[in-house]
Simulated scan of single mutants.
Amino acid sequence: MKKVMVAVVLSAATVLGGCAQQGLYGTSYSRSQVGQAQSVQYGTVESVTAVRIEGRADGVVGSGTGAIVGGIAGNQIGGGSGRTLATVVGAVAGGLIGQRVEQATTQRQGQEITVRLDSGRIVSVVQEVENGQFFNPGDRIRMLGQGSSLKVTY
């Protein structure tokens, strides 16, 4: 039974590792953005502020995986109605812990970039930091957008 528990825990770690957010960089695109026309504006970075982009809060994968692992762990305790109670408590506790782990492992370093466009308009965009490199005040950039979705690139 211990081998089964180890296998379940390793599987859970693999699943949680695979649920990292798709990049929110200026150079990453969702499938729905591919082939879509975007307006292009040029400007200069006025300021940059480091921000934290919250992790996934839906907890579907984390809480589900945690509940399974917790339930299996709880099922190893006691016998009869005590085992049933331990299984339920283990599943609930595992679900809560799994949700927190998922949220913590999917949070990202971001940057709020305030840009003065060549038109004179000032806009601010939050996006993930790519390869640890922040934009800097004075950088010439191009801003790509479609509707309310904007991204800053060089």
Rank of each mutant, 00 (worst) to 15 (best):
K3I: 11
K3L: 13
A13S: 09
L16K: 06
L16C: 01
G17I: 01
G18M: 11
G23P: 09
L24P: 00
L24K: 07
L24I: 02
Y25H: 07
S28W: 08
Q33Y: 02
V34D: 03
V34P: 02
V40C: 06
Q41N: 10
G43K: 03
E46D: 13
S47K: 10
V48I: 07
E54L: 00
R56V: 11
A57L: 02
V60K: 04
G62V: 01
G64T: 09
G64Q: 01
T65K: 00
V69P: 01
G70M: 06
G71C: 01
G71A: 02
A73Y: 01
N75C: 07
I77L: 10
G78S: 12
G79L: 07
G80P: 00
G80N: 04
G82S: 09
T84E: 02
T84H: 01
T84W: 00
L85T: 13
A93I: 13
G94I: 03
G98P: 00
Q99L: 14
R100H: 02
V101H: 04
T105V: 12
T105P: 00
Q107A: 13
Q109F: 10
Q109A: 15
Q109Y: 14
Q111K: 12
R116W: 08
L117G: 15
D118E: 09
D118T: 09
R121S: 13
I122V: 15
I122P: 05
S124F: 09
D139N: 14
D139A: 10
I141Y: 01
R142P: 05
G145F: 08
L150R: 14
K151T: 09
K151A: 12
